[in-house]
Design a protein around this nucleic acid. Structure first.
Lengths: 157, 157
DNA sequence: GTAAAGATTCGAGTGCGCTCGAACGCAAGG
DNA sequence: CCTTGCGTTCGAGCGCACTCGAATCTTTAC
């Protein structure tokens, strides 16, 4: 599908440096960035890495979306596996998937390979939602840039 | 700026027909679609046109975001002006601008041309937010399509 | 004339996703 | 030993944007 390349070009055309939350997630895009043999990290460091708050990480665990191990004194230990899961969750949340639907999806993951057809369907729907959002956002961008041009004295109409 | 053309191509590459809420807003993209000399319409029809619920339109009026006239029996009458305002509001909402910020913006509009510099600043910030969201959404799309490929037997990795 | 459909206002309720506060436990530095 | 600071759990609270229910009025169709 050609969509990826085109969007890649759109991204490349953004002249501003990446800022805020997305940076962290961006840094974890490919698994190579997460060293699978690295020692597990605490909740604060994990939160910083994935761009969420420690509170939110605990909340996600409480909802059954991640299951970090605990050390001898009960502290959470996030492994590379957990971090990859968190990055996935963060991206799905940012694209509008609800906690409810993520719980459903993760529970399917927990049930093993037999649930792959349903997981695939969920990802299909998610893809459609994201594409719709891209269209909506693009309209909003056009509207916004139109206003800016107008406020700048609409040199070209 | 090259961004618009590129995003246009991304949009053109979407093979699915447009569905749901965005359709209505899409239909109203350019002002030519709204006949300025057309008679005003009621709340139900206006809601359908802009893709919001009648409840939401009343809520927006209550928040001071639109001010449709009333007929002899107190029914709202949305003019082309009101509809354009609603389309603007719908797009800003869909791109994540809050009601709070929209109230601020509209109150500046009400105060006249002297507030243009601040309105321009608001639209600048909004544009940056939208571009960030486009990047986030694109990452989510990549992740989603990666999952789909994996579930389809990851033929290319 | 009367019933159904759709409009009005008002305040209250809902759902989502955090976010926080309180009370407490553990680890490292001086 | 003691403080400082991050960790824990739990339940409650919050902010946002609707969304709804109830009581009432208007318009339309028969």
């Amino acid at each position: 599908m050609a969509t990826e390349e085109l969007i890649g070009r759109v991204l490349a055309s953004s002249e501003e440096p990446f800022t805020s939350v997305i940076d962290a997630v961006q840094g974890l895009l490919d698994d190579s960035t997460i060293d699978a043999s690295a020692p597990p990290i605490g909740v604060a460091e994990a939160a910083k890495l994935v761009g969420l708050s420690p509170h939110t990480l605990r909340y996600y665990e409480q909802q059954g979306l991640v299951r970090p191990a605990r050390n001898a004194s009960g502290y959470r230990e996030f492994t590379a596996f957990d971090l990859r899961r968190l990055v996935f969750l963060a991206r799905m949340r940012l694209s509008g998937m609800t906690i409810h639907d993520l719980k459903r999806y993760i529970s399917l993951v927990d049930q093993g390979a037999s649930t792959i057809p349903e997981r695939r369907r969920i990802m299909f729907d998610q893809r459609d939602r994201i594409k719709r959002q891209l269209r909506e956002l693009t309209l909003a961008l056009e509207t916004t840039e139109y206003k800016i041009r107008a406020y700048d004295g609409h040199p070209e109409g």
